[in-house]
Design a protein around this nucleic acid. Structure first.
Length: 938
RNA sequence: GCGGGGGUUGCCGAGCUUGGUAAAGGCGCAGGGCUUAGGACCCUGUCUCGAAGGAGUCCGUGGGUUCAAAUCCCACCCCCCGCACCA
């Protein structure tokens, strides 16, 4: 029978018997979810991996006796689907190519996918078919898409509740923005500089006659060491009204400020030279410092006004030195030389190995000019790094003295901001940033934006608490989660464009797509009632959700108001109570810093602790023959195509067996094909085993030991979601065990082993497992019980005996290969004499070889053996003697297996005691060591 | 830069938590068996040397701890991922 036939047959059977439709009952429940896919394309190998892990666990838990709910929905919210519809509508060549070639959309259908609705309809159908074809044990009665009216009601409820808790707040935030398109730009909109991030400079407001000189800096802590400020003598500056203040900024800065949330108005252009030699007030220290010219100042970097800290900033140090020597400039701007000469670097950060850090490195690197950017950039970075991490602030900094720079920085900025003597100026980390349309992008501050208040420390605290009680798989990721929780800032949660739910209190805004996907697992409970028509959108109001999720309110009134029966309402409430919380959420590692984090945040915000998630599992990516997959550019391998080509079981098995959890899987055609062969091998072996029977044999106990050990290994691995190890054990190692058993003449247990084995592999390759299982009994393996192991049958002793035999065979084989003889007449095996065993045995009782020898040589017989004994003792202590083997009754054992050995080597085998060999032409018996008999071959 | 993960034999990957015979397993390669033939399948080998089961080398680099280090500690080099308003 072909594999595809088997697969389709059992998939039909599962649907017919509704095996995966889960409703509450008396059993313990297990609720597992996988992030629903976003429908801007077909499911691919990456989904295949994550989803298959989920399915394997779902199937395993089901067989372990849990009532398992494994549901699936579809994500539609956001802009990419709209973008795709537009691209298809205008027949964008790359899109048409990628979607027909890699997503396998037939061209005649593709050309019709010009609206988001058609795209969603097409890909949701495709996705469901793909997931059925690969045999996922999903309860399909619960599917939905995030643009369903009923789902929108659910999201509205969620956001109203969050707002009530003050977790949705108004604010402004910086985005990359194209002035020409008048739109924020995303990564793929950017022509040049897509690696640029937005960095926030601190602006410190130095004052002169009521005019502010906003000095932009990344090192606000150095404000205590300012000796002067810089303007570029060749740069253009404006005097501008900024809100209710007057600022002097570069012309470039003025332009940028207009995109912020400040009101900006040019008063007049000013010449920087009119300020040189004048004194500005440092608002932090109260010092008055001069304004001086420096050409390194970049008008296109932040405000174009810079504070000078010659003790810690190499640029400033060099510029001052240059100025001091440049009489022409001094004269030109009427700057008194004594001003420069009186400037002394003010050290405010103490760091080992430096006195005045900037001076030290400039001298050491022999930097002569402020235009030597390459060297200056390098040493600037060097000093910054050292000072930030290891530097300690000194008494110059007043109350911050004794603290580390890294500890003080944020605190200092927020204090200065509060006193309104500092501000923020956003700037790109890399320049230029150019939009696809060719326009230079700016940082724009979007005003009156709605935010999820993730920075809220109490909220974070709660998430941390939740995390503490969760299982994180792999455990190494826990620290990553902790870091990300700490790092998470407020997140804008509303958009102008896209698909989704409108913000209920401000319908101009759409709820952003990650924000609407945080607690939707709860919605799966309702979805089956919605899909069966028992509930429609009109039934869903806040009272309904409060009642179902919180048990709040009066049942009768709520039912009345919702327009559904009280019985139904209570049924849904009970079902929610039964399934929630989520026991396991399994996902790709790309979702750690966003979705999974929000998943936790929203759960702790909206649900009591007993409804918080229990576990998160994270897995790596999938690449194709070493190349990264890309939905929009290719290459891509769809789930459907993989299944069609290699079969469901092979695809499942391959993608899980290739790498452990965090590791990325590289999909290689050749290896997948080999897995297909392996499955045929398994079926062939299974057929042999099913019909196999025979008498008891000496290897039966060994086989039982192995089998039980393997069950144990597979079970423990699956409990930890280590699917790779589980597959390895269940398929390869157990198969090797069975082969060895058969080779050794084992027959009796074959059929029984198969009956157990087939259940062991059922979570991974359910179709083949069903087929083989059906040879034995009527029911389905999907609902059969997972094998339990019997610890008492796992026998170390029996396994040692078997390993001993293998080791002896290896030795014989090696000897045979070394003598390079065509025909072997016979093999003589000499088992070590009793006295040697005694030496080995008693050696173990002593701490070191000298003591052992002393003790053993008390025996006269041993003394006579002198050198041999001491040599043996040395070998024991060098670890050359296998203690497990040494204590076996080797003679009996080898004699028992003599026939087997004769068959293996196709010659006669004689086992002798080394004390009294009947035939030993080369006197090899002397070499016999406990656990390692001497061998003679002729 | 910050944070996380990683560097093992031709390749992919175990082993590292808890130091104790490095090289599980797969792919590839070689030899043999089976077969009309090919594929598949089965067996054996695959760091180096070896005409007796042995010896030597070895886990990114350099140090350290230890009787003993792939494993623990320190420093350095290299690779991958995330750094957000995008699903």
């Amino acid at each position: 029978m072909e594999l595809t036939e088997i697969e389709e047959k059992w998939q039909r059977e599962w649907i017919k018997q509704r095996v995966f439709e889960a409703d509450p009952d008396g059993r313990k429940k297990f609720f597992i979810t996988i992030p629903y896919p976003y429908l801007n394309g077909n499911l691919h190998a990456g989904h295949t991996r994550t989803f298959t892990i989920g399915d394997v666990i779902a199937r395993f838990k089901r067989m372990k006796g849990f009532n398992v709910l494994f549901p699936m929905g579809f994500h539609v919210t956001g802009t990419p689907i709209i973008g795709l519809a537009e691209l298809i509508a205008k027949k964008d060549p790359q899109t048409m190519e990628v979607y027909s070639r890699y997503h396998d959309v037939p061209l005649d259908i593709l050309t019709t996918l010009t609206t988001p609705e058609r795209i969603v309809e097409y890909f949701s159908k495709e996705a469901e078919e793909a997931m059925k074809a690969i045999g996922f044990s999903i309860d399909w009665r619960r599917k939905f898409t995030t643009t369903d009216d009923t789902y929108k009601k659910f999201i509205e409820w969620q956001f109203r509740r969050l707002k009530e808790k003050n977790l949705v707040v108004k604010g402004s935030h910086p985005v990359r923005y194209c002035p020409h398109d008048q739109n924020p730009v995303e990564d793929h909109d950017i022509l040049v500089g897509d690696e640029a991030t937005i960095v926030d400079y601190t602006v410190i407001k130095f004052k002169l006659d009521g005019v502010i000189f906003p000095c932009a800096t990344l090192r606000p802590e150095t404000v205590f060491g300012v000796t002067n400020i810089w303007l570029n003598p060749e740069g253009r500056y404006f005097l501008v009204n900024v809100d209710d203040e007057q600022w002097v900024v570069s012309v470039e800065a003025e332009e940028k400020l207009r995109f912020t949330d400040k009101n900006v108005e040019i008063i007049r252009e000013v010449d920087s030279s009119e300020f040189f030699g004048k004194y500005v007030l440092n608002p932090v220290t109260g010092d008055k410092v001069p304004v001086l010219p420096a050409t390194f100042v970049d008008g296109d970097s932040a405000t174009g006004v810079v504070m000078s800290v010659p003790a810690h900033a190499p640029y400033d140090y060099v510029a001052l030195k240059e100025l001091e020597k440049n009489d022409e400039i001094l004269v030109r701007y009427g700057i008194d030389r004594s001003i420069i000469e009186s400037i002394k670097p003010i050290v405010l950060i103490e760091i080992e190995g430096f006195k005045i850090p900037a001076e030290d490195v400039v001298v050491r690197e022999k930097i002569k000019s402020q235009i030597d950017h390459e060297k200056l950039e390098r040493v600037t970075k060097l000093i910054y790094k050292k000072e930030f991490h290891k530097g300690v602030l000194n008494q110059t900094t007043g109350k911050y003295a004794g603290k580390k720079v890294s500890e003080v920085k944020d605190l200092l900025v927020s204090e200065l901001m509060e006193k309104k003597i500092a501000d923020v100026f956003y700037e790109f980390s890399v320049k230029p940033v150019i939009c696809r349309c060719g326009t230079k992008c700016v940082v724009r501050v979007v005003k009156d934006q709605w935010f999820l208040n993730y920075s809220n420390p109490e909220w974070k605290q709660k998430v941390m608490k939740c995390l503490e009680n969760m299982d994180i798989i792999p455990e190494a990721y826990r620290i990553e989660f902790e870091n990300k929780i700490d790092w998470l800032k407020d997140k804008a949660c509303a958009r102008r464009k896209g698909l989704g739910t409108k913000l209920p209190w401000d319908p101009e805004w759409l709820i952003e797509s990650l924000a609407d996907s945080t607690i939707y697992m709860a919605y799966y409970v309702l979805a089956s009632y919605i899909n069966s028509g028992l509930i429609i959108a009109d039934n869903l109001n806040d009272e309904f959700f409060d009642y179902v999720f919180y048990g709040l309110g009066d049942g009768k009134k709520t039912a009345e108001k919702s327009g559904i029966s009280e019985d139904l309402l209570n049924l849904i409430r009970e079902e929610f109570e039964y399934w929630y919380p989520v026991d396991l959420r399994s996902s790709g590692k790309d979702l750690v810093a966003n979705h999974l984090l929000f998943f936790l945040f929203h759960h702790v915000a909206l649900f009591p602790p007993e409804k918080w998630p229990k576990a998160i599992a994270v897995n790596g990516y999938v690449s194709l023959e070493g190349k990264k997959m890309s939905k929009s550019k290719g290459p891509l391998l769809t789930m459907k195509r993989a299944v069609k080509k290699y079969g469901a079981d092979a695809t499942r098995l391959y993608i899980l067996s290739k790498a452990s959890h965090l590791q990325d899987v590289d999909w290689r055609k050749k290896e997948v094909e080999n897995i297909v062969n392996h499955l045929y091998r398994f079926i062939q072996l299974a057929e042999e085993m099913f019909t196999g029977s025979g008498p008891e044999s000496t290897v039966d106990t060994w086989m039982m030991s192995r089998l039980n050990f393997r069950i144990k290994e597979v079970t423990l691995a699956l409990e930890k979601l280590e699917t790779r190890d589980a597959i390895h054990t269940a398929f390869y190692e157990l198969m090797n065990d069975v082969r060895w058993y058969m080779k050794r003449g084992g027959k009796k247990l074959l059929k029984d082993i198969l009956h157990i084995w087939v259940r062991l592999i059922a979570p991974f390759t359910p179709h083949i497992a069903e087929e083989v299982f059906s040879w034995f009994e009527e029911g389905l393996v999907s609902t059969a019980s997972f094998p339990e192991w019997d610890e008492s049958l796992i026998s170390k002793e029996v396994e040692i005996q078997e390993n001993y035999l293998i080791s002896v065979m290896d030795d014989i084989r090696e000897v045979v290969s070394l003598i390079k003889k065509e025909d072997i007449g016979g093999i003589w095996i000499y088992v070590a004499p009793e006295w040697k065993k005694k030496v080995v045995e008693s050696s173990r009782e002593w701490k070191d070889p000298r003591e052992a020898m002393k003790a053993i040589f008390k025996d006269k017989f041993m003394r006579e053996k002198g050198k041999e004994v001491s040599q043996l003792i040395t070998e024991v202590y060098e670890g050359k003697v296998n203690m497990d083997f040494a204590l076996l009754d080797e003679f009996t054992l080898l004699n028992r297996e003599r026939k087997f050995l004769e068959n293996e080597f196709k010659c006669k085998v004689i086992v002798e005691r080394a004390e009294s060999p009947k035939y030993d032409p080369q006197n090899r018996s002397k070499r016999a060591s406990p656990g390692k008999p001497a061998i003679y071959v002729e």
